[in-house]
């Protein structure tokens, strides 16, 4: 029997609520809000309460997928990145920089969010940057 309570931060939005994940024999089985984290003081929203559910979900993406002939098909990272960069370039050339938009994420670090806005503004040339909550 291996049971642990692991203190972590909710990854659903940018609030940063503190919570404990209950881990039983290597599987995350439950969520308990942390009473002493100042952001949430023992409270959570419905998403936070259920954050353990997505961790072992069979619906999680584990490989890049590209839609080919209408069906999502597994692809290598190299192929997926080449395809995405190529299409971004094409759209920008054809329709202009403001035809593209970039959605940052609450699930990544500040530094990664900095990079995506820098990429949007400096590399692509658009101010169309928004948050994943408005997806």
């Amino acid at each position: 029997m291996d049971y642990r309570t692991v203190l972590t931060t909710c990854a659903y939005c940018g609030c940063g609520c503190g919570l404990y994940l209950e881990v039983l024999d290597g599987r995350v089985v439950n969520t308990i809000p942390c009473k002493t984290t100042p952001v949430n003081e023992g409270k959570l929203c419905v998403k936070g309460w259920n954050i353990h559910e997505f961790i072992h979900s069979p619906n999680r993406l584990t490989r890049p997928l590209i839609r080919k002939n209408g069906a999502l098909t597994e692809a290598s990272w190299e192929e997926a990145l080449d395809y995405t960069a190529g299409r971004l370039w094409e759209i920008k050339e054809k329709h202009g920089s403001d035809s593209l938009a970039f959605l940052a994420s609450a699930k990544v670090t500040n530094e990664e969010n900095y990079l995506i806005q820098k990429f949007a503004r400096a590399a692509v040339g658009t101010n169309n940057v928004d948050h994943c909550a408005r997806l």
């Binding site: 029997m1 049971y3 642990r4 309570t5 203190l7 503190g18 404990y20 308990i32 942390c34 009473k35 002493t36 984290t37």
Partner: peptide, 20 residues
């Protein structure tokens, strides 16, 4: 007992812990 459900100070916070 196999384990004890109590509370523990962890990383400056207080939370539930199974003491074994």
């Amino acid at each position: 007992i196999k384990g004890f459900w109590g509370l523990r100070t962890m990383q400056g916070n207080i939370g539930p812990f199974l003491f074994s």
